[in-house]
Simulated scan of single mutants.
Amino acid sequence: MLRIGSVVMGVSDVRRAAAFWTEALGYVPREEPEEDWVVLVPADGVGFQLSLGLSETPVQEYPRVHLDLYAGDAADQAAEVERLVSLGARRVDWDLYPEDPDFVVLADTEGNRFCVIDTTHA
């Protein structure tokens, strides 16, 4: 039986990306980061790993794979979006939003897109 061990994202600056995602998720490096690679793990040991690898490929405007970060409700979602923006994320002017979205699209410090989801949205 297989299981997901790590989600891997390409970045142009491993240390900058690691600083953002450790603050965003409360993760810690599994070992000392290298210039071209770091594996971040949940501080409490529960959850997926996030691996960040040096990449020279451009960020995709419409990525086929991305992270969904779950918030408890709409207020939590709004607070988390503001917290992530204060850490260096930016809002994405997403032209594919549905009529009443349960998600907000952001980009991390490297331009990688991710969503913050209101899990109580009907």
Rank of each mutant, 00 (worst) to 15 (best):
L84G: 04
V85K: 09
D44P: 08
P63G: 05
P98S: 04
P101M: 05
Q49R: 05
L50N: 07
P58N: 02
A89C: 07
L106P: 01
I117R: 03
L84S: 01
R90E: 02
E23W: 04
L87K: 00
Y97H: 07
P101L: 05
D36Y: 09
P29Q: 02
R30I: 14
R64M: 01
Y27A: 13
V59A: 04
E61H: 12
A78V: 13
E99D: 11
E31N: 15
P63C: 04
S55A: 08
G72P: 11
R64A: 04
L54W: 04
Y97T: 07
V39A: 13
P33H: 06
V38N: 07
D118A: 10
A24M: 11
A24Q: 05
Y70G: 12
E35N: 12
L54N: 08
L50T: 03
G88R: 01
S51G: 14
G26H: 09
D68T: 08
P98R: 00
L87Q: 03
D118K: 10
P101N: 03
S86M: 09
V65M: 09
T57L: 11
L50R: 09
V85F: 14
V92W: 01
L84W: 01
R113A: 05
V28P: 02
G47L: 08
A75H: 15
T57C: 10
R64N: 06
L84T: 02
